[in-house]
């Protein structure tokens, strides 16, 4: 079985821009930005590579958090960041091309968003 090399590095949201710039100076290209909804949080992977040793920066965010855009460093990142905004309802700040939620229009707004917490109300009483 042929294993493709892939290292995942977990970082804080505040380090994202600095790290992305480091990769850019080292000559890495941006492979993809992908988001995974995990019930109460979201994982976002930023994948970079020079040849075939892939490296992913992973940040964890919650509903309502703001994510800084890396489109200042990688011009082409706008397409992924707009996608994350449209499908997951996360806000990305300072994108170079901002579609304002019109890149992908869906019947259900932000279909991949985590479901809201449900509070079960017991009969005849208010939720605690």
């Amino acid at each position: 079985m042929n294993e493709q090399k892939h290292t995942v590095i977990e970082i804080a949201v505040t380090d994202l821009l600095k790290k992305a710039e480091e990769y850019h100076t080292k000559g890495h290209r941006l492979v993809q930005i992908g988001c995974t909804p995990l019930g109460d949080r979201y994982e976002i992977n930023y994948t970079f590579t020079t040849a075939w040793d892939f490296e992913s920066l992973r940040i964890t965010v919650h509903d309502g958090d703001e994510i800084p855009s890396i489109s200042g460093t990688y011009w082409g990142a706008f397409i992924y960041e707009n996608e994350i905004h449209d499908l997951f309802g996360l806000s990305v700040t300072d994108m170079n091309i901002d579609f304002q939620g019109h890149l992908i229009e869906t019947r259900v707004p932000t279909p991949f968003k985590n479901p809201p917490k449900v509070t079960i109300v017991s009969k005849g009483g208010d939720a605690q």
Partner: peptide, 26 residues
């Protein structure tokens, strides 16, 4: 790229596809 994340259930948690055309738009 196909990214798959699974947690031991028969339905996987996330399947994310990054297709060549999507990244060729910029």
């Amino acid at each position: 790229m196909h990214y798959v994340k699974a947690n031991g259930k028969k339905n996987i948690v996330r399947h994310r596809v990054r297709t060549p055309t999507f990244t060729n738009i910029p």
